[in-house]
């Protein structure tokens, strides 16, 4: 009896210890987040209601004119539209590119698997700016692609590839692809190969197995990877600036311009919050639509 009582008491005591220590472990990270993220955001949010004056820089006020200016100016609406479009296309394309590779990496039993993972992670070690510079060398008028096309006689004059939307798309997709691959890979690894075999055994060909079994089961990975990549794309800065040129404007470079070039902090702050809110709203809408689909299928199944 006595031993039973002590063994029963011990786990409870241990749990109590963990509980008392837990909150303290969160303190450093919480302080960091409050100091370097929450506080500046609050300040910035307040700025977005101030009034801009070229002479006095910023006048304390409480006005919505910065937001009103954004939504009445076709130029800025266009910048936001471009940003959303780039983010959506890049997310979709990287999903299509990443899935087969992620599947291969999740399923391979080759001893080269870790080499494959390193190859995918490696680009993350190269900064965006360095990478954009590399793309310049590839896509420029004197770059490798044009050189190749000229010498092969496919074109007679260099084709403009740099400072085009195409260059931005390529550049951003290359940046976000590893994130998508790694997210999908970990989710696909969690799906047993045996369920795919079961589907095949029951008569499902590879495409049907993908559509009916693999894709629905990997949807959480698609949602997670899509969210991560979409947010990264929405906030892309270096790639659109360096590969898109001055004509191609996305939100992050636009708001940076407001802060540095025109020193219009209130409008810049408003742009920042519009970017943040639209990213947030689109992400939430996207994930709910997808996960409701997942959920729907289950509900549909229930009455049968």
């Amino acid at each position: 009896m006595a031993t039973a009582a002590t063994t029963a008491a011990r786990p409870a005591g241990r749990r109590a210890e963990a509980f008392s220590l837990g909150p303290f472990l969160l303190v450093p990270a919480s302080l960091l987040v409050v100091a370097f993220l929450a506080a500046p955001l609050v300040v910035l949010f307040r700025y977005s209601f101030n009034r801009y004056s070229p002479r006095e820089f910023m006048i304390d006020a409480f006005t919505l004119e910065n937001y009103a200016r954004f939504f009445t100016d076709a130029y800025f609406i266009g910048v936001l539209a471009t940003t959303v479009q780039v983010a959506a296309v890049c997310t979709l394309v990287s999903l299509l590119f990443a899935y087969p590779l992620a599947y291969l990496m999740a399923r391979t039993e080759s001893r080269w698997k870790s080499a494959l993972v390193i190859a995918v992670v490696f680009p993350l070690m190269v900064g965006n700016v360095v990478r954009a510079a590399g793309w310049m060398a590839v896509l420029g008028n004197e770059g490798i692609v044009n050189h190749l096309m000229l010498s092969l006689g496919i074109v007679s004059q260099p084709v403009r590839l740099m400072y085009t939307p195409f260059a931005v798309y390529v550049g951003i997709i290359a940046v976000v692809l590893p994130y998508m691959i790694l997210t999908l890979q970990s989710v696909i690894e969690g799906i047993g190969r045996d369920v795919e075999e079961a589907a095949a055994n029951l008569g499902a060909g590879p495409m049907t197995t993908f559509r009916r079994v693999l894709l629905p089961l990997s949807l959480p990975g698609v949602i997670a990877g899509g969210t991560l990549v979409f947010i990264l794309c929405m906030n892309a800065y270096a790639t659109p600036v360096l590969l898109g040129g001055p004509q191609f404007k996305m939100m992050a470079p636009a708001l940076y311009d407001q802060f540095t070039r025109t020193t219009n902090w209130p409008f810049g702050a408003a742009l920042a919050f519009i970017l943040m809110t639209s990213t947030l709203v689109l992400t939430i809408v996207g994930t709910t639509v997808l996960s409701r689909r997942m959920h729907h299928r289950k509900l549909e199944a229930a009455p049968r």
Binding site: E197, A199, L202, G203, V213, K298, A301
Partner: peptide, 28 residues
Amino acid sequence: PPYRRDTGMVFQSYALFPHMTVAQNVAF
């Protein structure tokens, strides 16, 4: 390929489709 053979297999892990109901599993 496995999907053109007329075999019915019961796996050691059962390998049921976790996102489908019992009836949907059997109907597959």
